[in-house]
Design a protein around this nucleic acid. Structure first.
Lengths: 332, 332
DNA sequence: CTGAAAGCGCTTACAG
DNA sequence: CTGAAAGCGCTTACAG
């Protein structure tokens, strides 16, 4: 039975519960001798403070809320890994909240705040700009520290951790342009995500700069659906370069191309984003932008711990480096 | 500001806080008229009960602990999706705990219990049998409801939700045997997981039944590492059938085989487990056992809610159906 | 149907 | 350095 309370410990150690509490929270304020006695009893009884009671009394729950839209996306899961590792280091617990399409973001956020989390990590990247302002207002009104992870919002006051997706989009497009590709498509999602908007912006900038016509083809994240889209695509479009906003989309496109006997990378170069296992397991292997997803999770969690313990943190907007992993699906 | 407390509501509505509490928890005990008045004030003030205070007073936190070992595995992430959806339906919050290799399971479990969760969902499938007994004892001693999800333990008293992995392993092996394959390998993980043990058992049973020699080849989950293992494999082994305990392992094996000009499925049939996106995105597409991972998560969460609200639940061991999805990597 | 009061298990000024 | 006491924001018998 590990349901001993602080009273049991105090009684067994012959001290008041205030002293037990101090041993746990401010050990330096307790005389060495009594401290040892209390610690001994704590160990003997297997006492672990009830975190709920502690949360109520101290108004700190050492719990952070993680807001996501879809756990099953590989990048989200990996970010969670980074978050979880750092949270563990800092002794924070994680409460997971999933925002579904039919739910009101603001409402959920208020619920999360009612759960008394000490801070919020927002991984959802599907907010439109005015929505972001509303969200930001909620956080600020409730004075709750927050960080946007893997989300790019231009507002300088919003704490965020991401890579420069615009630049990455630009660079990967430039790579193909430098290899004399003219009909380069960006394969994006029908649903708008802030990060994909950035990739599109970078792609567009590179194309216009080279005097080429930017062409964005929107499809679904569902493999069965985009298979159809891509087959239709090939029947009426000329293409010698394609960039998928996700590896899985790029691989799916590459498979259709090869089913149709298109030479990759000879006649068609393909690249993806995220450098997931899909890029390694495809044939040919896929050139991809490596996004340090785990690090984004870890760094944003660390930033959040700073914000939770201090009012002025110097650098609240962190851009992590990315790089292009060149593989068989491109020539250069 | 949504930091109104129950006192504020009581004051504004001209009732005692006990009444406000009843409106929230036992509305039928409050006269229609006062109830409406209170609800109106609640809405006006944007009052949301502090769940921590409620948790302390009621000794129920409406929070469940989810124990996992690795979020980044696709099956874990998808299970989390199912868990999250059902938890949301039943108004439970989710606290996520990751058990890392260097950590003591029992110790973590005690921590989780100190967090006052109402129940625990255990997705970690790496426990050896005697470890399971210890874990079970902790749960029982602390009288905390628990469910093992996607884990197969034979103890009839342990609540669990899974598929019959032994049978699945048997069936997929039988499929290849029926197609006259003789040298069928099971590609398993070096690390032992309870579910993989079951797959191995089913595979072995089918092989022995057919008078064939079972051969288990153990490799890593890391694509770069198993690439080397598989190249070594082909240099000295005869093989005409291979079953990967995960799709990604099967696809990796298939890629190496094809790099070495082995005809798949002509000379070599390959199948995987889990029917993930990997199976769809590979070329040839991969035959795989469809494991209803989302459902396992959802059903185990539902079972947990039952266990949390009642002492005797009739069916605490649930086996979900699976089926084989035949694709290009096998002939039959 | 409603209110006054005790209590959930802690933390934290305040005294001493 | 330590203890007595108030308080965190709720719930829940117990009266009435």
């Amino acid at each position: 039975m590990s349901n001993a309370t602080i009273y049991d410990v105090a009684g067994a150690a012959g001290v008041s519960l205030a002293t037990v509490s101090r041993v746990l929270n401010n050990p330096e304020k307790v005389k060495e001798e009594t401290r040892q006695r209390v610690l001994k009893v704590i160990k003997e009884l297997g006492y672990r403070p009830n975190v709920i009671a502690r949360g109520l009394a101290s108004r700190k729950t050492t719990t952070v809320g993680i807001v996501i839209s879809d756990v099953t996306r590989a990048s989200v899961a990996e970010m969670l890994g980074g978050i979880s590792d750092i949270a563990h280091n800092y002794k924070y617990s994680i409460k997971l909240f999933t925002i579904r399409e039919d739910m009101d973001v603001i409402d959920i956020l208020k619920d999360i705040i009612a759960e008394q989390v000490d801070g919020i990590l927002y991984l959802n990247d599907e907010l439109s700009t005015n929505r972001v302002e509303e969200v930001e207002k909620i956080f600020i009104d409730n004075q709750i520290p927050f960080v946007f992870a893997n989300v790019v919002y231009d507002d300088e006051k919003v704490p965020m951790v991401s890579i420069d997706y615009e630049k990455a989009g630009y660079e990967i497009t430039k790579l193909m342009i430098d290899d004399d590709r003219k009909d380069i498509y960006l394969l994006s999602t029908a649903r708008r995500y802030s990060v994909n908007d950035k990739k599109e912006a970078g792609y567009t900038r590179a194309m216009l700069e080279a005097g080429l016509q930017p062409r964005i083809f929107r499809t679904s994240g569902d493999t069965n659906i985009n298979r159809q889209h891509f087959n239709a695509f090939f029947s009426d479009k000329k293409v010698d370069g394609a960039i998928g906003v996700r590896d899985s989309i790029a691989v799916s496109f590459m498979n259709i191309a090869r089913d149709r006997k298109v030479d990759v990378p000879g006649k068609l170069e393909i690249a993806g984003f995220q450098n997931t296992k899909y890029a390694l397991l495809s044939r040919p292997t896929l050139t991809s932008i490596d996004v340090p997803v785990y690090d984004i999770g870890a760094v944003s969690m660390r930033l959040l711990t700073k914000l939770m313990s201090s009012n002025d943190v110097d650098n609240i907007r962190i851009i992590l480096p990315h790089y292009i992993v060149k593989r068989e699906s491109t020539k250069i």
